[in-house]
Simulated scan of single mutants.
Amino acid sequence: MSATPDRQRQLMPVDIRQLKGKSPVVCLTAYTTPMARLVDEHCDVVLVGDSLGMVLHGLPSTVGVTMEMMILHGQAVARATSRACLVVDMPFGSYEESPQQAFRNAARIVAETGCQAVKLEGGQHMAGTVRFLVDRGIPVMGHVGLTPQSVNALGGYKVQGRGEDAARVTQDAAALAEAGAFAVVLEKLPEDLGARITAEIGVPTIGIGAGVGCDGQILVLDDMLGLFADFRPKFVKRYAEMGANAAQAIAAYAADVRAKQFPGPEHSFATEGKA
């Protein structure tokens, strides 16, 4: 059985939840208005991920990302998102203290960006917070497995859920689904575990390095476009080499300027004329 989402209106979290077992959920990140315009046409979910701290701001991890950064980029993406469900990450330190803190910050993100949902990291220990938000009208996408905001505690960007650790990750995903999350991101898990969790929980799983058995997939847009020559995670398929193309274009421009071949007559203005 397959289903095509209704693209005549903006998809809501309930629409994404209903794709479980019907149609693969297509997701990408976006951080700017021009990129969001390109992504929106093809995706079911557009995520303003806190990965923007590393991708756009040169931070070593997502830990230093602030509420103000997420809201600024969320607003930029919202200006070009009219079809996909827009989800914005809650940054580190904005929701862990208490459900009440999480609600204040989630409500601010939703109000100031116009997004349809927020995403937060963590498993069983965050289930109560997820339920608190959902009960108060804020849809939540969960995130288990490798949780980048906890990279210091995890000891690096390591595969999660191997051996006995599989039970923990499975319980984490189940707890979030039971708490009301409309979808759960599974990051950097063994392929068979990703498929097993997908079969066991009642909401869509969105894989990133968790295998083809997930209900959907997400990648960081800049990774799949090949904007970074020195960053090649195993789970990323490059669909373009835009970094190399951009470097060549910049080099050609610099050469033209130094050789005084740019601007040419076609790029210059006459003393008289309409333009």
Rank of each mutant, 00 (worst) to 15 (best):
V14I: 12
H42A: 15
V45P: 01
V45W: 02
P91L: 11
R7Y: 09
S94F: 00
P99T: 04
V26M: 13
T33Y: 03
Q101F: 01
A84F: 05
V55I: 15
D15H: 13
F92P: 08
T62I: 09
G49I: 09
H42I: 15
C85R: 13
Y95S: 05
G58L: 14
R79V: 10
M35D: 03
P60A: 13
R17S: 03
Q8R: 15
H73V: 00
L86H: 09
R83Y: 08
I16T: 11
S98Y: 10
T81K: 14
S23L: 09
L72K: 15
R83T: 15
V55T: 08
A78Q: 09
V26P: 00
S23P: 06
R9G: 04
D6T: 05
M90L: 15
S98A: 09
H57W: 11
D44E: 14
A36C: 01
L38N: 10
A102V: 00
V45H: 07
A78M: 12
V25T: 12
T81H: 10
V55N: 14
V39W: 05
V45E: 07
V65L: 07
Y31V: 01
P91A: 10
Q101A: 06
E68W: 01
E68T: 11
T32Y: 00
T62K: 12
M69A: 12
I16R: 11
Q10Y: 01
D40M: 10
D89Y: 01
M70K: 05
V46C: 12
Q75T: 07
V77D: 03
L56I: 03
V26S: 09
D50N: 06
M67T: 06
K22M: 14
A80T: 08
Q75L: 11
Y31D: 00
V46F: 07
D6Q: 04
P91T: 12
F92K: 04
K22A: 15
D15R: 14
D44F: 00
P24W: 03
L28M: 14
L86M: 13
L38Y: 13
H73I: 05
D44V: 01
P13L: 09
S82R: 14
S94D: 04
D6M: 09
V25C: 11
F92H: 12
L59K: 14
T66S: 13
P24F: 02
D6I: 09
